[in-house]
Each structure stands twice: as C-alpha cells, then as structure tokens.
Simulated assay, not measured.
Amino acid sequence: MKALVLFALSVATLGAQQAQNPSPMVEHTRAHPRLKEEAPAGRREALEVGTLFMPGGLKKTAPLLIHFHGGGWIAEIAAARAGGTAAISLQLGSGSGAYAKPFADPQLFLRLVAEAEAKSGITFAPITLSGWSAGYGAIREILKVPANYARVDRVLLIDGFHTGYVGGAPGKGPGQESVIEADGLQIFLQFARDAVAGRKRMVITHSEIFPGTFASTTECTDWLLAQLALPRKAVLRWGPMGLQQLSDASSGRFRLVGFAGNTAPDHVDQLHALPDLLKWLK
C-alpha cells in the first residue's frame, strides 16, 4: 500500500511539472511508420521567413502549399508528390505563440507570397495553408486579415486546433464540465462555414491527446461541430500512415476526421501523413 501511495504522489508531481501532457508512454500496437527523410529534386529560395521549394516543371500559375511546423522536408515531399505544386515551409519555434507572433504583422503573409512569386516568376493559386501542432497559431493570425483570407483557398489543420479554458483550467464549468474560450476559434469557424458552403476547402484532423493546460483538439473540434450543427459519425478504419480513424464529419467542402491515440508518436503520425492528407483537399 505504501508503494502505491508513493507511486501516486510521483505521478501527481510529474503532472504538475509538465506544461502539457501527451502521454509520456509509447504504445506499440500501431506501427507508427515514418516517411524517409529526403530532399526532393527542385530549386530552393530563402524568403523573409521560411524557404520556397519549387519542383521542376511548374506552370506559370501553380498551386502553393504553405506549411507551418514540423520538418520542412515533409512539406517538400508533399508538394513533390502532389505534382505541379510549390511549397513554403516555416519552422519558427515551439508553441503556437512562436507562429502567431510574426503574423501579428498584417502585411507579412501577402509580402511573403509576393516575394515567392517574384523569386520564382510564378503566380501562385490556389494557396493552401497547413499547420501541424503549434502551426495553427500562424494560420489563425493570417486568416484574421480580410485581404489574406480572400487569398487563401484551402486550410489543413493537422492535430493542431487549440484554445484556452474559461477559468484557466479544465473542469471549471457547471457540473465540472470544461468550458473553452471560443474567441480564438472564431476565424476557423468562419472558414469552416465557407467550406461547408463550397466557397473554401477545409480539412481538420485530431488525435485523443489531452494536454491539460489548454483545450484539446477533441474539445475544440467538438465545439466547432456544434456550431456547424454537424454530427460526428463513428467509424473504424485504417487511415494514412497506419493511423486508425475513429470518427468522421463532413459537409460541402469541409471534413473533420478523428484518429486514435494519446501519445507523442500518435501526434507525429499525423505530421507524416501530410502528403496523403493534402489529397483530401482536392
């Protein structure tokens, strides 16, 4: 009994020390395959922020993927596999704030696109924004600017869609229910509604990770679906990169997919699925 009490105290202490907690364990049921790191053939140009990748054979007007967070080589592989697509990858640090801060400058996004077009001699359209994990912070700031919003055609959020809790912690609402701060999600709701109406395209994926110090992707997507009046459909099927799909919700050009897993490898699985997830936006 004494050993059990000591174990419980050690777990509580560990939890108090961690800023967030995808489970520290690693599960071995799923294979967690990974893309092979490589540099696809093509030309690269350094930009004010990020790197522009241009595979050979791009037309004078070409699609552009702008990806935030995770290895830049993954975005390049995704663009190369998509065919006829350029990519800008940005690695700006840890936490959504590191991605949000630069794009608090309302001119940065259009300046970045203009620089990419000038250095490539290509007009980029349609433009897709994708963000894994903390990368959603940049996308949120970009979409808040009407001129940016008009230029963006597609959004892909990969297990990165968060906000804070009312009261600063989970379980502070009536009946110990968690209440999330919706203000930071409103621009995503606007884009989702436009996707449902067929004016934009949007895909959101999420895991079962519960960070604890801020609202999980499950809680935030539950809120989003409630605003859209869209039900989740329970499914059980294999997804890309060995992911196990548990739920699906879609309407018009909007789709939201839930995957199993609450560990760090489950989170990374979704990043490595980027080349496949990008196809869902077509």
Rank of each mutant, 00 (worst) to 15 (best):
P106A: 05
R140F: 00
G137H: 02
Y99S: 07
G135P: 07
L110C: 03
V113C: 03
P126D: 14
S94E: 07
L92V: 11
P102K: 04
K119R: 07
G135K: 13
E117A: 15
A104C: 08
G135F: 13
P102T: 08
F124G: 12
T123D: 15
A104R: 14
K119E: 10
A98D: 08
Y136K: 10
S120F: 01
F124D: 09
I122A: 10
A118Q: 15
G131R: 01
L92S: 03
G137E: 00
K101Q: 11
G137M: 02
T123S: 04
S96C: 09
E117S: 13
L108Y: 03
D105P: 14
I127H: 06
T123G: 10
F124C: 11
E115G: 02
L108T: 01
S94D: 06
W132A: 05
Y136N: 11
F109N: 05
L108V: 01
P106I: 07
L129F: 02
S133P: 00
A114W: 02
A114G: 09
G137D: 00
L108S: 03
Y99A: 08
S94Y: 06
T128M: 04
L108P: 05
L110E: 14
P106D: 06
L112A: 09
A116R: 04
R111N: 15
A118I: 01
Q107M: 02
P126Y: 11
Q107L: 15
P126R: 10
L112H: 08
P102Y: 04
P126M: 12
K101V: 03
V113I: 14
A104E: 15
S96D: 06
P102I: 11
E117G: 15
R111H: 13
S94F: 15
G95S: 05
F124S: 07
P106L: 05
I139D: 00
V113Q: 06
Q107T: 12
P126I: 13
L108C: 01
A125W: 03
R140H: 07
K119Q: 08
S120G: 13
G131C: 03
Q107P: 00
T123Q: 13
E117V: 08
D105K: 12
S120T: 07
F109T: 03
I127S: 09
G93Y: 06
A134H: 06
A125Y: 09
A98T: 08
S130A: 15
I127P: 03
L110Y: 06
Y136M: 11
I139W: 01
R111I: 05
P106Y: 09
Y136F: 15
R140T: 04
F124H: 08
Q91N: 14
S120Y: 09
L112K: 06
W132L: 02
Q107Y: 09
L112W: 13
F103G: 02
R140V: 00
F109D: 07
S96V: 12
T128Y: 00
G137Y: 02
F109G: 03
L92G: 04
L108F: 01
W132E: 01
K101C: 00
G135W: 12
P106K: 10
G137Q: 03
S96Y: 14
T128G: 01
W132T: 06
G97I: 02
L129E: 07
T123V: 14
L129M: 08
P106E: 12
R111V: 04
G93D: 11
G95I: 04
G131M: 00
Q107R: 12
R140P: 02
A125V: 04
E117K: 11
S94A: 12
A98R: 12
A118H: 12
S133E: 10
A134R: 09
I127C: 12
A138N: 00
A138E: 00
K119M: 03
P106Q: 08
A134I: 13
